[in-house]
Design a protein around this nucleic acid. Sequence first.
DNA 1: GTGATGACGCAGT
DNA 2: GACTGCGCCATCA
Length: 108
Amino acid sequence: MQQTYHELVYEVTRQIPKGRVTTYGAIADFLTLGSARMVGWALNNCTFGITNIPAHRVVNRNGELSGRNHFPTPTLMQELLEQEGVAIENCRVKNFKEVLWMPSEMKQ
DNA sequence: GTGATGACGCAGT
DNA sequence: GACTGCGCCATCA
């Protein structure tokens, strides 16, 4: 069993604290994947069985819920984030900078 | 085996 | 400040 990108991405995504969000770039940089696209691709596989992966906490560099279209319902992502205390404005994370969480914080 | 696509990011214009 | 084009690696047709 090889720890592919998905495994790593899943693990990192699972470590995202409640009320916080991270970006594809942050994960890509932390895992040194080389490109944020790999993260999106990995999460795409994750949605295959929406397990315990809070993919709704992963947004793009702009803080936009770019992946909402891949959820059962486009609003689910926003709903979940709002329930966790993350303010969403026009499909974008409000105070994105304040709720932004980086994988490196996981170790601290 | 080749071409196109993907839940993105960055540099250049 | 906003938009466009290119690159990243892997998977699918």
